[in-house]
């Protein structure tokens, strides 16, 4: 589904990402871990064509992302608060995203209703603009907005950060469901080793922009990751 080849990104002679080859098959739930500055967000930004690669390219579903825009209809993402429109209420924001992705109001309502317990009653009908919500609640709105319109690829950068424990567990359920039942390719980055091993079938460890581990998740994975980062 997503093929990365010879991809690198350099800022002023400082190489921040260098991935020779990475193949993510359709329907995989893919976890990306690494310390700060390892290149996780850079990789996701390249996937969304928000920055230009220095060399190489990414092909998503036969579309080369930095050449054509045809990846947009089947890809959605929540990277940070720059994906939120601060002066909209959450409802308006969902409808806006829905309209861009060819969904009518009823479709959006139906989808959002599924995530009512994820919202924990703090998003809908709050009579607040997104910019006035807390960081955690903003994140909830952003994540659910990324699920609108049946995307085939969903990219979530640090989705567990800032969320309360209950919501973290619910999010894990959502991600597992997406990849397992619906065949959606989900890409997640996280600093939380426990959560990421829990939801991902495969985990790639980045270090200074390079892939240092590529693991199929098993019982032993968490231990291995802990040892890697402790040492």
């Amino acid at each position: 589904m997503i093929t990365t080849s010879n991809l690198s990104k350099t800022y002023n002679n400082n190489q921040v990402l260098n991935i020779e080859a990475l193949e993510i098959p359709k329907g995989q739930s893919f976890g990306l871990v690494g310390n700060n500055g390892a290149g996780k967000t850079t990789y996701f930004s390249l996937l969304l064509d928000l920055i230009q690669p220095t060399t190489g390219h990414i092909i998503s579903n036969e579309v080369q992302v930095n050449k054509s825009e045809d990846w947009k209809p089947f890809t959605s993402a929540f990277i940070d608060e720059s994906f939120l429109i601060g002066y909209l209420t959450p409802e308006e924001y969902f409808y806006f995203i829905g309209e861009l992705r060819g969904q009518n109001k009823a479709d959006v309502d139906a989808l959002v209703a599924q995530y009512e317990d994820f919202f924990h009653g703090e998003i809908l009908g709050q009579k607040k603009y997104l910019r006035d919500l807390s960081k955690g609640n903003q994140k909830k709105a952003g994540i659910v907005a990324a699920l609108i319109g049946n995307p085939e690829v969903i990219i979530l950068d640090e989705p567990f950060a800032n969320l309360d424990p209950t919501t973290q567990f619910r999010l894990k359920g959502i991600v597992k469901d997406l990849a397992g039942k619906q065949g959606v390719t989900v890409l997640i980055s996280s600093h939380d080793l426990l959560h990421v091993t829990d939801v991902s079938e495969r985990i790639v460890v980045l270090e200074k922009g390079e892939i240092v581990k590529d693991l199929v998740t098993s019982e032993a994975t968490l231990k291995e990751l802990e040892n890697h980062f402790a040492g």
């Binding site: 969304l48 928000l50 209809p73 990277i79 940070d80 720059s82 939120l84 601060g86 861009l100």
Partner: peptide, 12 residues
Amino acid sequence: SAYYPLMMSQNI
């Protein structure tokens, strides 16, 4: 400008 990355990754 505040949400330009969103606009650029959506199908607009």
